[in-house]
């Protein structure tokens, strides 16, 4: 099976429970919406092939449990991620407030090589619902404060903006993977440099 895989981009969807992570994933992959989803336990993923910049890539989209208590499982799933999608519910202020902790927790657990520039994408979901509690302006401000994270307002129910959002996700993930490959392949001298930096980085995350 592994031999048939092409460029594989691993994408993790994070966010509070019932902000619509599973719905977004299924809307994107199979273009359908149902209100029959149950709370995600453990983790699940779907794959989808997309063409980004004339290149066919396979997106492996991981859907996770929303309750923060289950984050301890994350280590197993976050590893090797190429992009992290943060989702909040525009009608529920609390889901927006916890974005920071989701982002931080992800960076700690996944410990990417370059945390500063690791690609995140923010999705404000359920824009079809009223009343709105988080304005687009406020979400964008948050994004700007986090190194200009791309922001999309989506509706998994109506399929609004979902395609565009995931295309951006794929692009960012691909860019991330390319930069990683470049680091390995084209500048072999730099490997040493990163190696010396790595212990300090991973040391932080391995506080356990």
């Amino acid at each position: 099976m592994a031999s048939r895989k092409k460029i594989l981009l691993k994408v993790i969807i994070l966010g509070d429970s019932s902000v619509g992570k599973t719905s977004l994933m299924n809307q994107y992959v199979s273009r359908k919406f149902t209100n029959q989803y149950k709370a995600t336990i453990g983790a699940d993923f779907l794959t989808k092939e997309v063409t980004v910049d004339d290149r066919t890539v396979t997106l492996q989209i991981w859907d996770t449990a929303g309750q923060e208590r289950f984050q301890s499982l994350g280590v197993a799933f976050y590893r090797g991620a190429d992009c992290c999608v943060l989702v909040f519910d525009v009608t529920a202020p609390n889901t927006f407030k916890s974005l920071d902790s989701w982002r931080d927790e992800f960076l700690i657990q996944a410990s990417p090589r370059d945390p500063e520039n690791f690609p995140f994408v923010l999705l404000g979901n359920k824009v079809d619902l009223e009343p709105r509690a988080i304005s687009a302006k406020r979400a964008q401000q948050w994004c700007q404060s986090k190194n200009n994270i791309p922001y999309f307002e989506t509706s998994a129910k109506e399929g609004l903006n979902v395609e565009q959002a995931f295309l951006a996700i794929a692009k960012n993930a691909l860019a991330q993977q390319n930069s990683t490959i470049d680091l390995y392949n084209e500048f072999p001298d730099q490997i040493k440099l990163t190696n010396t930096q790595k212990p300090s980085g991973s040391g932080d995350s391995c506080a356990c």
Binding site: K5, K6, I7, D54, R55, T56, N178, I181, D182, N185, E186
Partner: peptide
């Protein structure tokens, strides 16, 4: 051609 390119060759392609 992109679909017929397997992983090792892909790396070559990038360079």
């Amino acid at each position: 051609s992109s679909d017929s390119v397997t992983k090792p060759t892909l790396k070559k392609n990038l360079s």
